[in-house]
Design a protein around this nucleic acid. Sequence first.
DNA 1: AAATTATATATCATAAAGATATATATCAAG
DNA 2: CTTGATATATATCTTTATGATATATAATTT
Lengths: 180, 180
Amino acid sequence: MAKTNHTKYAILGLLTTGCRTGYQMKQMMDTSLNHFWKISYGQIYPTLKQIVEEGLATVQDIPQDGKPDIKEYLLTEAGEKELRQWLSSPLENIPVAKNEVLLKLFFSRHQPKETTIEYLVHYQEILQARLHTYEGIEELIQIHSIEKADAQYWLFTLDYGKQITAAEIMWCKDTINKLS
Amino acid sequence: MAKTNHTKYAILGLLTTGCRTGYQMKQMMDTSLNHFWKISYGQIYPTLKQIVEEGLATVQDIPQDGKPDIKEYLLTEAGEKELRQWLSSPLENIPVAKNEVLLKLFFSRHQPKETTIEYLVHYQEILQARLHTYEGIEELIQIHSIEKADAQYWLFTLDYGKQITAAEIMWCKDTINKLS
DNA sequence: AAATTATATATCATAAAGATATATATCAAG
DNA sequence: CTTGATATATATCTTTATGATATATAATTT
C-alpha cells in the first residue's frame, strides 16, 4: 500500500468537525464515518505528529492529573488550504472493495450448496443489522447537528450506505433463491 | 493488517481453476476476480513459497530458454482440504469497504457545490464504465467455461458487481439532484 | 469491593499495495 | 527491418494500513 495516504486528509477533515484529540478522532471515525472508512491509532498518532511538523495543525499540551497529557490539535490556515486542495483534486484510481463473501462464493463449487446457502443467509443477517446501525447514525446526525453545515453531506454518505446495503440484501435473496 | 491472510486461500482457490504459475494467478485475478479482489506479486510469490512449505501444493521447475524458469504449482490433497475448511469457516468481521468518494463528500461543505457535483458526475461515469467491464467479464465467463462447474458461482459474483454498481449509479444521480 | 468500561497516548508485528528490477520473446508500427 | 511496446515470468522493496497490545487512571457498573 504505497502512495495513497488518505489518512492525512481524513485527519485534516476530522479537525474541522470539532475533534481535537487523537482519541476523539478515533471515536468520531468509529461512530459517524464507519460506514465508509476506518482508522487505527497506529495511523492517527504518527500522522498527527507529521501534520504538526508540516504546519497544518498546532498542538497544545494540556497536563492531566496522573493521566497522560491531552494533546489538543487545531487546524491552521495552511491545513485548511491543504484539505480544500485535496477535496478538489480529481479521483484517480478508485480501488476495488475487497469482499471476503464473494471470494468464498467464487470457489464455492468445492462445498455443498447447503453450506453456501447458510453463509449467504448469515451474510444477509449481518447486512440487515448494518442497515439498522445506519438508521441509528442517521438519528444521531439529525439530533446533534441540525445547525451544522456538515449535516447535509453526512446524510448523503449515510444514504449511500443505506441504498447499497439494501441492494446487497436483495442480491443475497436472489442468490439464495437461485441456489435453492 | 495483522491476522487475516486471505491471500493464502485466494491462491489455493486459484489453483483449482487451472492457474499453475504466479503470473497466471495475477492475470486471472485482474480479469475475472477484479470486481471484488486484488492481489500483488509482493503477496503471490512469498505466499506460494509458504504454501509449498506447508505441503498444500507442489512445485515443478520447468526450465525455459533464457527466460526465468516457470514454476508450475499443483494443489495437493492437503491443499484442497485446507481450502474447503476455509470455505466452510464462519464469516467473522466483514470490514468496511473504504470509499474515497464518500470521505471527500463527508467534508465537502468546505468547497463550492459545483465542485462536488462535478466529481459526483465523474464518479458516475467511472461506475458506468465499470458496469460495461462487468458485462465484458460476464461474456468471457460464459464463453470460456460453459462446461465448468465454477461458472454458476462466478456469475453470482458478477451479478453482485452489477447490482451494486447500478445502485451506486442511482445514488449518484439522487445526490447530484439534491445538490442542484 | 471488584470488574469493566471510558479516557488518552503510543508502539509493534504482520499484511497488503504498488512500484520497480530483471530478462527475454513476440508483435506492431514506422 | 529495426525500434518500441507489450506479453511472459519471477522476485524484492518501500510505504501504508491493520489489529493487537502496552501503559495509566478515572468513572461506572456489577
